[in-house]
Write a protein that binds this DNA or RNA. Structure first.
Lengths: 262, 262
DNA sequence: GGTGGGATGTGGTCTGACCACATGCTAGCG
DNA sequence: CGCTAGCATGTGGTCAGACCACATCCCACC
């Protein structure tokens, strides 16, 4: 009837079931490839293909050698896998840059809203306000790093992307954090490509620095609407500035721009 | 210095570069595995591992046989890959269900806002309003399918998840659509798990049907704030109803429910 | 008791072989 | 001359076996 499952899919499914049932948990080690192969009745190469997939997806980490710490270990770090997926999809024209930017706007607006609201809650609480207050140490530190005048454009933009990712991390939502991590390389890509069309990089980077500080200030003040609008303008502003007219036609050989005869 | 790249990583990188440079585009066929292997100076199994990864990520589709249509073909369909990633991460406890729900709230609120605004724009435009108006045929059709009284809970919830995904598709944002597609199986999972704790499935499903219709109506009326709040209440309401008290302890052996002595 | 080197177990890779399947060509038949 | 059955070919899917590099562990030797 339906397509017979390929051998590596059997392996993948078996591991997934073990995860769902709790037989495998983060920190556990997978059985050796050779053992899995005989246990599931498949060849070792099929086991390896499944493990490779899980590794790229961020589910596990492999290392050679012997003893504890070696072998395939469940880690469940979604960032890497999401990042690879987004990067490759953008490379294969699966994800238009405009959609990446729109998604950024939505996610980051939500992130700063949550952070600002958490700050406000912490302010209105007497006790333990330090523990309720979101931890902005990482983003603030990146703010400082971005002040260095010796930075190249690429270095600055890398720190910029990291700053936005650090905000997402601070919000504590792991799905959003992983998605932002995935978007990150795509973001860096379009930011760098667009930077060449700027009138003055010095002016723009100064503006970006100020906008970052304003966003953090709004979060710490617990002003969610302000944080939301600041982050929206920050992202949309840069994108509009760098990608206004040139939508890169680059379709096929027939990119002459002339109307087709027919 | 840094770790030497593993053979399959070289293959992956080579294909990624071909995608970025435009040497490979959607619809193209990859060279045969054996040819790639000799070209890159690696074994065929390493090529296969890289191809497997790309396949799971939704970058390409493989099929045996000969002639056009066979082989590995670039497709760039992000849904499948995202779905596998999210499903496995949830299975491995990488993504808490609460974060999945929060992310749903953010993304779906944005989706219906955009749809409603597009509707409003279409209303205020004289010409070609039909083409500007978002295409809600697919979600509306699912609404009809969900009316069937013969549906089991699982079937209803599957249609429900599909309805929400169809809304995302209608919004046209491919990144959001792919993310929702990824969230979909996780959503179905928690929805089904929670359904067992409902007082009356008949009542709840009737309410869900009505809420769906109200959301579509608000979109078609171009009322973005209403659509936003309706979809928020719809999702948050069901989640609260089904996951209020029991955070599924199921941690380890000590799931007795008794307070620990200490 | 300390230490160095081999034994062991693991992933990483390659080679070669065979199978299943889809296509395309060709020889043979009507 | 045209059609069709069946073989040739090219592709992915899988397996088995071998070897390497590496990390650890253990034991004999000093």
């Amino acid at each position: 009837m339906s397509a017979p499952p390929r051998a590596w899919e059997t392996v993948l499914q078996s591991i997934e079931l073990d995860l769902l049932s709790g037989r495998l948990r983060p920190g556990d080690r997978l059985p050796p490839e050779r053992a899995l192969a005989v246990e599931l009745g498949v060849g070792r190469s099929s086991v390896r293909e499944a493990i490779r997939v899980l590794e790229v997806l961020g589910l596990l980490r492999t290392s050679a050698g012997s003893g504890p710490g070696a072998g395939a270990i469940i880690v469940a770090l979604p960032g890497g896998g999401m990042s690879a997926l987004m990067r490759l999809q953008v490379a294969a024209r699966g994800f238009p840059v405009a959609d990446v930017v729109k998604t950024r706007l939505v996610l980051e607006a939500s992130v700063v809203t949550e952070l600002a609201e958490a700050s406000a809650r912490a302010d209105s609480t007497m006790v333990a306000s330090a523990s309720l207050r979101p931890n902005l140490r990482a983003p603030v530190q990146l703010l400082g790093a971005m002040d260095s005048p010796a930075l190249t454009e690429a270095e600055f933009l890398a720190l910029d992307a990291e700053f936005h990712l650090a905000l997402a991390e601070a919000s504590g939502n792991q799905v959003v954090t992983a998605t932002m991590a995935g978007l990150r390389s795509a973001i860096e890509g379009y930011a760098r490509a667009g930077a060449t069309s700027l009138a003055s990089w010095a002016d723009t980077s100064t503006r970006l620095r100020a906008e970052h500080r304003a966003i953090v200030a709004a979060i710490e003040a617990g002003d969610a609407p302000a944080a939301r609008s600041l982050v929206h303008d920050h992202i949309a502003g840069y994108y509009a500035e760098t990608h206004q007219a040139h939508h890169r036609p680059a379709r096929t050989a027939d990119a002459s721009g002339y109307p087709v005869a027919r």
